[in-house]
Computed example of a mutant assay.
Amino acid sequence: MDTPVGFKAELIRGKIVVSPFSTLRYLRSMRALREQLKAHAPEGYITETSPILFRFPAAERAYGPDLFVADEAAFDEEGRHADSAALSLVAEFTSVSTTDADWNEKLEVYGRLVPVYLVVDMQEKEITCFSDPSPHGYRFRKTVSFGKDLHVPEPFDCTVDTSTF
């Protein structure tokens, strides 16, 4: 789907949802998180904020995460949708219009497949790490306020400094 400049589209609950890209004030937080994760990403994986849509066939969904770490080989395919099985981490930066989907819909879908899901709650000024996916969702959750360090488990096993968020 071609979207207007500055917007992205996702399939959420069977509907195409078009939302604007992040606001300017998100840039520093996104860049800081991307750079910290990039240093600890598994070999052969890329850390990006590019607008790429990942398909989740079992859930009949497709999402374009704000930040992702994925196996670079997934981008050798033709087409516009990458395989969600390539993901090792997804981060969503909440906004007033996306908070519900980030905390509910995406948490449920990511929690069955993606090893690590970070919700960077820009309104509450907190970051939550979900990990250890299962058929029933994530088994682990840890939340810290901006300014505190957050441990991100395997396959990263690193500490994220949120002081610049």
Rank of each mutant, 00 (worst) to 15 (best):
residue 151 H to W: 03
residue 18 V to L: 06
residue 78 E to N: 11
residue 162 T to A: 11
residue 120 V to H: 14
residue 131 S to L: 13
residue 45 Y to L: 00
residue 3 T to M: 07
residue 60 E to H: 14
residue 117 Y to E: 00
residue 148 K to V: 00
residue 54 F to H: 07
residue 84 S to T: 13
residue 41 A to R: 12
residue 25 R to D: 08
residue 90 V to D: 04
residue 128 T to L: 12
residue 127 I to G: 04
residue 141 R to C: 08
residue 52 I to F: 06
residue 40 H to Y: 11
residue 142 K to M: 05
residue 92 E to N: 11
residue 139 R to P: 02
residue 144 V to Y: 08
residue 20 P to Q: 05
residue 53 L to V: 10
residue 42 P to Y: 07
residue 19 S to V: 10
residue 106 K to R: 11
residue 104 N to D: 13
residue 24 L to E: 07
residue 103 W to G: 02
residue 9 A to E: 11
residue 77 E to K: 14
residue 45 Y to S: 01
residue 87 L to N: 09
residue 24 L to F: 15
residue 89 L to T: 09
residue 50 S to Y: 09
residue 92 E to Y: 03
residue 60 E to T: 10
residue 6 G to Y: 05
residue 71 D to W: 06
residue 11 L to V: 12
residue 137 G to F: 01
residue 68 F to N: 04
residue 157 D to E: 11
residue 89 L to N: 14
residue 128 T to E: 10
residue 11 L to M: 13
residue 11 L to H: 04
residue 144 V to W: 07
residue 16 I to Q: 01
residue 158 C to H: 10
residue 80 R to S: 11
residue 134 S to E: 03
residue 154 E to H: 15
residue 105 E to I: 08
residue 59 A to M: 04
residue 87 L to R: 05
residue 121 D to I: 02
residue 5 V to K: 14
residue 44 G to T: 09
residue 152 V to F: 10
residue 13 R to W: 00
residue 87 L to A: 10
residue 1 M to I: 06
residue 116 V to R: 14
residue 102 D to N: 06
residue 51 P to I: 01
residue 1 M to G: 06
residue 88 S to N: 03
residue 163 S to N: 03
residue 119 V to H: 08
residue 129 C to R: 15
residue 87 L to P: 07
residue 137 G to W: 02
residue 24 L to R: 13
residue 66 D to F: 04
residue 100 D to S: 04
residue 65 P to I: 12
residue 83 D to Q: 00
residue 158 C to L: 09
residue 53 L to A: 08
residue 116 V to G: 08
residue 137 G to S: 06
residue 63 Y to Q: 10
residue 110 Y to G: 09
residue 57 P to G: 11
residue 113 L to K: 03
residue 60 E to P: 00
residue 112 R to P: 01
residue 16 I to P: 00
residue 125 K to R: 15
residue 75 F to D: 06
residue 3 T to H: 02
residue 89 L to P: 14
residue 51 P to L: 01
residue 43 E to L: 12
residue 129 C to M: 15
residue 113 L to C: 09
residue 21 F to G: 03
residue 91 A to D: 06
residue 20 P to S: 14
residue 33 L to G: 00
residue 147 G to P: 01
residue 126 E to W: 05
residue 64 G to N: 13
residue 71 D to T: 07
residue 120 V to A: 14
residue 129 C to I: 01
residue 151 H to Q: 05
residue 141 R to H: 11
residue 95 S to L: 01
residue 81 H to A: 13
residue 89 L to G: 10
residue 151 H to T: 02
residue 24 L to I: 06
residue 85 A to W: 10
residue 7 F to S: 00
residue 39 A to L: 11
residue 16 I to V: 15
residue 91 A to Y: 08
